[in-house]
C-alpha cells in the first residue's frame, strides 16, 4: 500500500486546509471572483471543503465594465448553481461618482482603477478576509506572497514585513479595519490547475477554448477587438483562431493563437509552451515591477 499522495491530491488537500482555516479564523470572509480559471478553482475547492454544507463565503466580483460577455454569463450561471450570494463592485459607478478617473489614450485600461473599487467594496462589506486565486508561479512579486497575507487599514501590502508561515500554522490575527488576502492555490502551477480542472470535469468559460474572433495586434500581443479599445492609426481588425490563457478585462488581456479546443489539448499546449501565461497581460508590462507596485497599493 502506498500512503503517499500524488502532487495534485497534495495540492488539493493543502488548499482545502487553507479554506477551512479561513472559515475558522475570520468573521466575514469573501471570495474575490473574476470568472477566470483560478477563481473558478477556488470556488470548486471551497465546495469540496465544506460539503455537504454550503460554501460559507459570498463571491465578490469587481466589474470593470470591460468584461468579456462570456465571463459575465459564466459568473451568473455559477452563482445560481451554487446558491451563493454575489456582490458586484462596479468601476463604472466609481467613475460616475468621480471616485476614480478614467485613463486616457490608446492604452487606457481600467485595470488599475479596480484597486480603489476593490478596497471600497471590502470596506463596505466589512470583509476581514478576501480569498483570491493568485499563484506564486504567475509573477515574480507573487512568488513572495504568503498564503495569509496581511493588509493594513489602507489595504497596503508590505512585502518586507510579512509574517513567517511555518508548518500548518497560519496566523490570521488582525486589528479592526485591517484585513487579510488569502491565496489557497499559492503552490499550484498553471499546468496543475488545468490537470485538476480536467480530472474534476469542471465547466469552464468558453473563452479558454479556441474560437474565431476579431482581433487587433499591438506590440506583439493580440487583443480582442471591442468598443473599449481605442485603435491607433494603422491598426486593423482581422479574424484569428484564438483562446485566452488568463481572463482579465478586454483592454489588457491578450488572446493567443491556438487551436486547443478541449481541456486535453490545452494541457498539451500548456505543457509545451515557452511563454508564461501572463506574458499576454499588458497590465504587467507597464514596468519591471508593475505587479509589485499595484500589489502594495492593494491590487489582487
Amino acid at each position: 500500500m502506498n500512503y503517499n499522495l500524488n502532487h495534485i491530491k497534495e495540492l488539493e488537500s493543502e488548499s482545502i486546509f487553507i479554506l477551512r482555516e479561513v472559515a475558522s479564523q475570520f468573521e466575514n470572509p469573501v471570495i474575490m471572483f473574476s470568472g477566470g480559471k483560478d477563481s473558478i478553482l477556488i470556488v470548486h475547492l471551497a465546495y469540496k471543503a465544506f460539503f455537504p454544507a454550503r460554501i460559507p463565503f459570498p463571491l465578490l466580483h469587481i466589474d470593470t465594465g470591460h468584461n468579456f460577455p462570456e465571463t459575465l454569463a459564466y459568473r451568473d450561471s455559477l452563482v445560481e448553481k451554487l446558491g451563493a450570494k454575489l456582490i458586484v463592485g462596479s468601476v463604472q459607478d466609481a467613475i460616475n461618482k468621480r471616485m476614480v478617473v478614467e485613463e486616457k489614450g490608446v492604452n487606457a485600461s481600467r485595470n488599475g482603477l479596480q484597486t480603489a473599487v476593490l478596497l471600497e467594496s471590502l470596506e463596505n462589506g466589512k470583509y476581514d478576509a478576501a480569498l483570491g486565486g493568485a499563484r506564486r508561479d504567475e509573477e515574480k512579486a507573487r512568488a513572495k506572497e504568503r498564503f495569509f497575507s496581511h493588509r493594513d487599514e489602507f489595504g497596503q501590502w508590505d512585502p518586507k514585513n510579512q509574517r513567517p508561515e511555518l508548518w500548518n500554522l497560519f496566523n490570521g490575527k488582525h486589528h479592526m479595519g485591517e484585513h487579510f488576502r488569502v491565496f489557497p492555490i499559492s503552490n499550484w502551477t498553471e499546468l496543475d490547475v488545468w490537470q485538476y480542472l480536467a480530472a474534476e470535469k469542471v465547466d469552464l468559460p468558453s473563452l479558454y477554448f479556441s474560437h474565431e474572433r476579431d482581433v487587433i495586434e499591438r506590440e506583439g500581443i493580440l487583443l480582442a477587438d471591442c468598443d473599449y479599445i481605442e485603435k491607433k492609426p494603422g491598426e486593423r481588425v482581422f479574424k484569428e483562431t484564438v483562446r485566452c490563457r488568463t481572463i482579465g478585462d478586454m483592454t489588457c488581456t491578450g488572446v493567443w493563437k491556438s487551436t486547443a479546443s478541449t481541456v486535453e489539448e490545452i494541457i498539451e499546449e500548456v505543457a509545451t509552451t515557452r511563454m508564461t501565461e501572463r506574458g499576454g497581460r499588458t497590465d504587467d508590462k507597464r514596468s519591471e515591477t508593475s505587479m509589485e507596485d499595484r500589489k502594495k497599493k492593494g491590487y489582487f
Binding site: A143, K144, K160, N187, E292
Partner: peptide, 30 residues
C-alpha cells in the same frame, strides 16, 4: 529570477523566501 522584489533587485540580495516550481516526468518540485 529568484529576487523578485524591487528592494531585493536594488540591493542584489534575497530578503524573503521565494517559492519556485519545476517538474520532471517523475516528480513535481517546490
Amino acid at each position: 529570477l529568484t529576487d523578485g522584489l524591487k528592494s531585493e533587485r536594488e540591493q542584489g540580495i534575497t530578503i524573503d523566501v521565494a517559492y519556485r516550481y519545476f517538474a520532471t516526468p517523475k516528480r513535481k518540485f517546490i
